[in-house]
Simulated assay, not measured.
Amino acid sequence: MSEYILKVPSSQQAEDWFRFVKESLLHTENVDSLVVDFNEVRFMDTDDFVVLACLIESFHINNCDVSFIGGTNGFNNHLFNIKFKEYWKEGFDRAKFTLSHNQTTLCLWKISKNMIYSYSMYARKYFERFTKNKDLIPMSSNMDEVFNNIFDHSKSQVTGYIITQYYPKNNKISFSVCDFGVGIPASIENADLDNDEKYEDWKAILKSLEKGFSIKSTPRNRGFGLNNLLELTESSNGVLQIISNDGLVLKEAGEMYKAGNVAFDFNGTLVKVEIDLNTFEEKDETDEIFDF
Rank of each mutant, 00 (worst) to 15 (best):
K283G: 06
V158K: 03
L136E: 15
F264D: 10
I5F: 14
S235H: 13
V239F: 10
G160D: 05
N149T: 12
F266T: 11
L99Q: 12
S235G: 05
L55H: 09
V41C: 10
L209M: 03
E57D: 13
Y167M: 11
Y126K: 06
L229H: 04
N170M: 05
V146K: 03
G181D: 08
V271C: 05
F75E: 03
Y257H: 11
S24Y: 09
V21R: 11
K83H: 10
S10L: 08
V35T: 11
S100R: 12
Q12R: 05
L240R: 09
F92V: 02
N142P: 07
Y257R: 09
F213E: 02
L226I: 04
W17V: 01
G225C: 09
I275F: 10
E285W: 14
V8Q: 00
E200L: 04
M115V: 09
S100T: 13
Q241G: 05
E274N: 13
Y166P: 07
R19S: 04
A186M: 14
G247M: 00
T233P: 02
F43K: 13
L240D: 04
G160F: 08
S67W: 06
R124W: 09
D48N: 15
L6I: 03
G91C: 13
N30T: 07
K211Y: 04
T159P: 10
A123Q: 05
Y167E: 15
F68K: 02
F290G: 08
G71Q: 01
G247A: 00
K89T: 08
E285S: 13
I173Y: 14
K283H: 14
Y161I: 05
M44C: 05
E128V: 00
F266K: 05
K96V: 15
V21C: 11
Q13H: 08
E29M: 12
A253S: 15
T286D: 07
N278K: 08
D201C: 03
Q241V: 14
W17N: 10
K169P: 06
W109Q: 12
L232P: 03
N195R: 02
Y119K: 00
E15I: 07
K283I: 06
S100P: 09
T28K: 02
F20M: 10
N30C: 06
D287W: 07
A53P: 00
E252D: 11
G238C: 00
F264T: 07
T46V: 14
M121K: 06
G74M: 06
S67H: 01
V8A: 00
L6Y: 08
W202A: 07
L270R: 15
F280M: 10
A259H: 03
L270W: 11
D65K: 11
D179K: 05
N261V: 02
K83G: 03
G238F: 00
F280W: 12
H101F: 13
L229S: 03
V182P: 06
V51H: 09
L250W: 04
E252T: 14
F292P: 01
S236E: 13
L26H: 04
C107D: 13
F43M: 14
I5Y: 12
K258C: 10
D16F: 04
E128H: 00
N133Y: 10
A191Q: 02
E189K: 14
T46N: 12
G212K: 13
S154D: 12
K203W: 03
D192C: 08
H78P: 06
E40S: 14
Q103V: 12
R220N: 08
S154R: 10
S174I: 15
K83M: 05
I69R: 12
G212I: 07
Y166A: 07
Q13E: 15
